[in-house]
Nucleic acid binder design. Sequence first.
DNA 1: ATAGGGTTAG
Length: 373
Amino acid sequence: MRKKISAVDSYALLYVIKACTKKSLAIEGKQAHTLVIKLGYEPNIFLQTSLMDMYAGTANVADVHQVFDEIPNKNVVCWTSLISAYVQNQKPNRAIEIFRQMQMVDVEPDQVTLTVALSACADLGALDKGEWIHDSISRKPEFSEDLCLMNALLNMYVKCGDIRKAKLLFDNVKIKDIRTWTCMIVGHALHGQAEEALRLFSALEAENKSRSSKSQGTKDQLLVPNDVMFIGVLMACSHAGMVEEGKRYFRSMIEEYGLKPRLSHFGCMVDLLCRCGLLNEAYSFILAMPIQPNAVIWRTLLGSSAVHGKVELAAVARSKLGELEVSLVGDDVALSNIYSANGMWEEKIMLRHEMRQRRTPGCSSVEVGKLHS
DNA sequence: ATAGGGTTAG
């Protein structure tokens, strides 16, 4: 089409930009942006917001903000895209700031804006701001009909630790989807309420069984567990020390539900085995994985080796982290602490010396008014 | 025909 440039209209460009977003194609996305300018489509607000979304998806927040700044009449969709870009790129503080700015220039947030803002609150653990948004939802009854928004609200309460509010909300949402259930299961799992989490999962399975034996109409309403839900289920087993159940759910996920475990599922299993002190089994499990283990998995084994005083295994895990070139200074601290616990002072001194040469800083975070890292 | 949204291991 570019050879016959007169045929390129704003719709063609829009779909090309969407394709770039979907496939995270940064260079092609930029080329599409160039064409938007060359062909004089800059006043098209649909194209501008799509471009913002494309830059957000390719981790280019600076360009998102620049596109936003150059839009003359910013509507609620433009503002929401900007907030979303900061959420997607792990800048929830900035997202909340923009959310405030938007209200100061009298642009009224809609359901989508509030959904995104709640996501930022969840990431920050900002319960007070989340509750403020909940209040503004309550003032618009039609907003409570929006399931995306309700799921975001539920997730906010879960991540901010208000499990009671989360449960109340869950019970009050009449029409739930698989994400609603997943949120609540993860919520219980995160709060150490493994039994509640697994009870919910069983309730969902029972509900599905009863519906699939009934008429065709109810079959359309089946809420089939997906891979994300199994992460919640496995987390619950892990936090409750339920090894055998965890292994059973892992098998059931593959065999009964036909789901392919992803890296995070293997991570859950390693965590489960490690927490129960089955470190050798965890190590064999990692070696037998069909996909390459990442740093989180080796770090789980390392941390657990430290707890259980398994020096050799800790050293293996640390060297794997080194190979992946993503090790944090905390990984070395963990290993160095095992050495001292076992009186291996020479090893400890050598490791500490290596650490001084690398000079990678550690980090922590604390909330003082807002979250600082 | 056109734009922005919710669940995911430590």
